[in-house]
Design a protein around this nucleic acid. Structure first.
Lengths: 209, 209
DNA sequence: TAGATTGTTAATCGATTAACAATC
DNA sequence: TAGATTGTTAATCGATTAACAATC
């Protein structure tokens, strides 16, 4: 449990390892070596070994590598896929609704327990079985339900206010889809998800061809 | 035009700068200095200066900084927001439909000209005015319309096949929302967008509190 | 035993940040 | 002129990759 510090990059690779291992398992492979995994995923072999060492509670065996099943269990445990976390989403627009409707979140350990919006037309409706409440109730709701993670899918102009209310309600981490950098205190983690940022990398590549 | 190599991190920050500058402009600010910008965006001041130097075609003036309007124009130019790029999307599920319905893409220089899916129920319908075609026609369509960027929103199992068809059709860059690492040749850029990866960073933070 | 694979220490690489002279 | 800000060179930091002894 008391793992050492794990780099952000390693964390982001873990879901790809997991997916790969699950595919292996469905083909009934029992063991896997880091070099094979590295080749299949187009990653450096030492990188894979270090990543695995960081999350695996058993050492690999020279010559044969790691047990697939154990590795899967360790990664899922590490990522918290086994104890579902309750989260709220603020902003029931196109993107917000898409996230609420996405079936894959339970598999990665999160469940939306409520959505929040300002639009009176939406308040007290449901999206995919999830109740939409007034943003006025956001802090209170989070505090009462002990919500620690909030997803922000409102336009940029409203994002900071929403963020402040989430934190006021006890949130410790924010998943921010608004194209703006939020101001938060040291101990709060903001993970930004910005379409324009990703696209920037793609566009530059295309412009250089 | 023949800019020097720009780091991926710099590229990803550019949209945040742009958004910030546009907000400034709407408040009628004429000039801005790197230190002020850095403070407002919670970034290191040298980082901001280097980023601006990389995209600005005019040097900043000591004491007064940069002209807001010029900076906006330079960043928009650099990111290609002024000449719209035609793209296709494959996989008209929840996420795919959300992206097709999102109004903000034209502002960041891309336009969906067609979506592709295997579901006969969807083929030949429209989503937000965008025609949905059969995946069988993907390569042909891309080649005919000279599409260089494809967005993949199909499940993991189908993603590699879709990727291959896009490249066969002439795509040079792939925006991949499937939770799998795609195999492509050296000259193709894949930008991965993986919910589980982002969430991993958030979960680990929450587990350590 | 021989050899593939492990875990770890050392070298490299790229990005960030600190230090500082040049300039308006 | 004095001082804020610029652009750039050097130092630091963290992540990646190379090298290698240990092990089954």
């Amino acid at each position: 449990m008391a793992e050492k510090n794990i780099s952000k990059h390693t964390l982001q690779r873990l879901p790809y390892y997991l997916h790969y291992l699950q595919a292996l398992q469905s083909e009934n492979a029992a063991r896997i070596s880091a070099p094979t995994m590295a080749a299949d995923l187009h990653l450096n072999e030492v990188k894979v070994r270090k990543d695995l060492a960081a999350v695996s509670h058993v050492a690999g065996k020279p010559k044969t590598g790691f047990e697939v099943e154990t590795l899967i269990a360790d990664i899922e445990d590490f990522l918290g896929y086994n104890n579902i976390r309750d989260v709220v989403l603020v902003g029931a627009g196109h993107l917000g609704r898409a996230l609420l409707s996405y079936k894959g979140f339970e598999a990665i350990g999160i469940r939306f327990v409520a959505a929040f919006d300002n639009d009176p037309q939406l308040i007290n409706t449901e999206i995919n079985g999830i109740p939409v409440l007034s943003t006025n109730e956001l802090s209170k709701f989070c505090r009462r339900k002990k919500i620690h993670l909030g997803v922000i899918t409102v336009p940029a102009t409203g994002a900071q206010a929403v963020c402040d209310r989430l934190i006021e309600g006890g949130a410790l981490a924010i998943w921010n889809f608004a194209p703006i950098r939020l101001t938060v205190s040291e101990d709060i983690l903001v993970q930004n998800e910005n379409m324009a940022s990703s696209l920037a990398v793609l566009s530059e590549h295309l412009n250089n061809r």
